[in-house]
Amino acid sequence: MSVRGPIISIEDDVDDQFLIRSVVEELDIPNELLFFNNGVDALMYLETTRDQPFLILCDINMPVMNGLEFRERIEKNEYLRKKSIPFVFLSTADNPLVIEAAYGSTIQGFFKKENSFEDLKDRIRVIYDYWSYCLHPNQYL
């Protein structure tokens, strides 16, 4: 993780992408925000970039490769696992079985995607602030 690295958002809903982008801009978060519509595209980017992303925000329900499958692929990839990119689910999926499965994949958080702009802004502020202050083995890369 690099505090200056990009924030990776895997989100297939264009309205949610717009809301997330608007929140990041309103919070004056300086990190580049990169959107991917599915886990396959995000995985190809992560496997080929030399960037050290700051954070991954991932939805659960997506076409091609869902969030749980995406997380599993990261965990099985030694190159990506060593990057230790903080991985947080941000999803409307709040089924207890999905949450349990998510935490079984060594994620760093699971947050419900809020319906109101202000509530979503509060969630993203908490996530960003936490990881901004957190010490990390790759923070100086």
Results as ranks from 00 to 15, higher is better:
Ile10Arg: 07
Leu120Cys: 09
Cys58Ser: 15
Met65Lys: 14
Ile127Pro: 06
Met62Arg: 10
Phe54Leu: 05
Arg73Pro: 00
Phe36Lys: 05
Leu57Gln: 08
Asn115Ala: 15
Phe70Leu: 03
Asn95Leu: 11
Ile74Tyr: 04
Tyr133His: 14
Asn95Thr: 08
Trp131Asp: 04
Val126Asp: 09
Val126Ser: 12
Arg125Pro: 00
Asp94His: 15
Thr48Met: 04
Asn37Ile: 00
Gln52Phe: 13
Pro96Val: 05
Met62Lys: 09
Tyr130Thr: 08
Ile8Leu: 08
Tyr103Asp: 03
Phe35Cys: 00
Ile10Pro: 05
Asp59Arg: 07
Val126Phe: 14
Gly109Arg: 07
Gly39Tyr: 07
Ile56Gly: 02
Pro53Leu: 04
Lys112Pro: 02
Arg21Gly: 09
Ile107Asn: 00
Val3Ile: 13
Arg71Trp: 06
Pro63Cys: 03
Gln17Glu: 10
Leu68His: 07
Arg73Tyr: 09
Gly39Asp: 06
Asp122Val: 11
Phe18Cys: 02
Thr106Lys: 14
Leu43Lys: 08
Pro137Arg: 06
Pro137Glu: 02
Leu135His: 09
Glu114Phe: 08
Leu80Ile: 06
Leu68Glu: 00
Arg125Lys: 15
Glu32His: 09
Glu32Arg: 13
Arg50His: 09
Cys58Arg: 02
Arg123Leu: 03
Lys121His: 04
Ala42Cys: 10
Leu97Gln: 15
Ser9Asn: 14
Ile99Met: 13
Ile10Phe: 10
Thr106Arg: 15
Met62Gly: 06
Arg73Ser: 13
Ile127Leu: 10
Glu114Ser: 14
Glu69Asn: 11
Arg50Leu: 06
Val126Leu: 14
Leu46Ile: 02
Asn66Trp: 12
Trp131Val: 02
Arg4Asn: 14
Ile99Gly: 07
Asp15Pro: 00
Pro30Gln: 11
Phe36Val: 01
Leu57His: 08
Ser84Ala: 14
Pro96Phe: 03
Asp122Thr: 14
Glu32Gly: 01
Ala42Val: 03
Ser2Leu: 13
Phe117Gly: 04
Ser22Gly: 10
Pro63Ile: 00
Phe18Pro: 00
Ile74Asp: 00
Arg21Thr: 04
Phe117His: 13
Ile7Trp: 02
Phe54Arg: 03
Ser105Ala: 11
Glu72Gly: 15
